[in-house]
Design a protein around this nucleic acid. Structure first.
Lengths: 197, 197
DNA sequence: CGCTCGTTTGAGAGGACTCAAGGTAGGTGG
DNA sequence: CCACCTACCTTGAGTCCTCTCAAACGAGCG
């Protein structure tokens, strides 16, 4: 989801600077704003799984985040934190609602974005529901390809730890599973770099 | 999500009878229609987890299902099957898009519905991401309360097997975990009926 | 009563997790 | 250019606990 900068400002949006590590909103807090990244990057995660950080997504300039709870008046299930010094745009809920009410094309974009989120989250749920570590990894890699985050025969831009965090496994388990998958020719590991075949 | 019967018909929707066990759409197929239950009930599940059925949801008269992939032109991740003899309304994608384009209030309802789905699916993902069976069960029960499906001190309307299917555990594990939770006074089991405290 | 469906208990195996210890690559400073 | 540091990767041993398989129990119903 992306709304033109000038349009956000026109509707009363403001820009805010966020330092690295600063929290934009946290779990169980009430949504008040529509948020869009102007510069930097915002990390979205859940921290309630036995204190372990469970990364959901990372948002970069032009992308918005945190709409679902805003639209249905529920508390955030996630925490948003600046990964680096960033600037974000804030638009009050009422103004945001007015904006989409008066701009049909943006409303349609929002609809698609929400559909996309529902779709991707279900995909993640299916990864997690899978009891076998190997299957989880394969499904996770598949998802990356589908989301165009990686291409086949391109090294995967995540550390083993980052992969583990996203699929709910331990680093060691990821490593051992990757070894099995390599023997089955489903992934390739060259000089520690991981390739999906 | 719910659209008025007459309106669906006006836009060219048709009703279709579905026998018990019949598939409305299945995983990896292309979305073509907007679907809404008229009578009976439709079960949504994923079957790809080692052949085990993973129930996502059950839809009853007046509710629609399967919109996210329809809106973003992706294949279904789920299978929809009639739990009993049912009648559903089908509306071609183009007509559906035209309908929401011409009815702003319905478009807003769709938006909220999608936000709700994204929210609920994330909640499910957080349940699954939790490594401890007890925590999964507690979070699952919490979700039921939040969705107003159950109230505290009301027997939970699911069999142990159904609970297990929704959180990715075995029946036996659910039973043994429930016993532990009872000892911790987090649930109550009276005459096999389960109460959430 | 006898069937069926859901619940419960037990024993055993497998495998992910934990903890601990090295190994390796890339960057930094002397 | 080399020694060092740090972050990441890897391996091993052992424990714990979920899953599997098998069997039996309980409740509701024709």
């Amino acid at each position: 989801m992306h709304i033109d900068y000038d349009l956000i400002i026109t509707y009363g949006g403001i820009a805010k600077k966020i330092s690295k590590g600063e929290i934009v909103f946290s779990e169980n807090s009430e949504p008040k704003y529509y948020y869009q990244v102007l510069s930097g990057s915002i990390k979205i995660y859940t921290s309630n799984i036995q204190g372990k950080e469970f990364v959901q997504d990372i948002y970069t300039p032009g992308q918005s985040f945190g709409e679902p709870p805003l639209l249905i008046d529920k508390k955030y299930l996630i925490t948003a934190e600046a990964q680096e010094e960033s600037v974000i745009l804030l638009l009050k809920k009422e103004n945001f609602m007015q904006l989409i009410d008066e701009h049909k094309e943006i409303h349609f974009e929002l609809t698609k974005d929400l559909a996309n989120r529902a779709y991707n989250t279900l995909f993640s749920a299916q990864i997690l529901a899978n009891p076998s570590p190997e299957d989880k990894i394969i499904k996770f890699l598949n998802q990356l390809v589908e989301k165009n985050i990686i291409e086949k025969n391109t090294p995967i831009p995540y550390t083993r730890q980052q992969i583990a965090n996203q699929i709910g496994l331990r680093v060691e388990t990821v490593i051992r599973s990757l070894n099995k998958l390599q023997k089955e020719n489903k992934v390739q590991i060259i000089n520690r770099k991981l390739y999906y075949l």
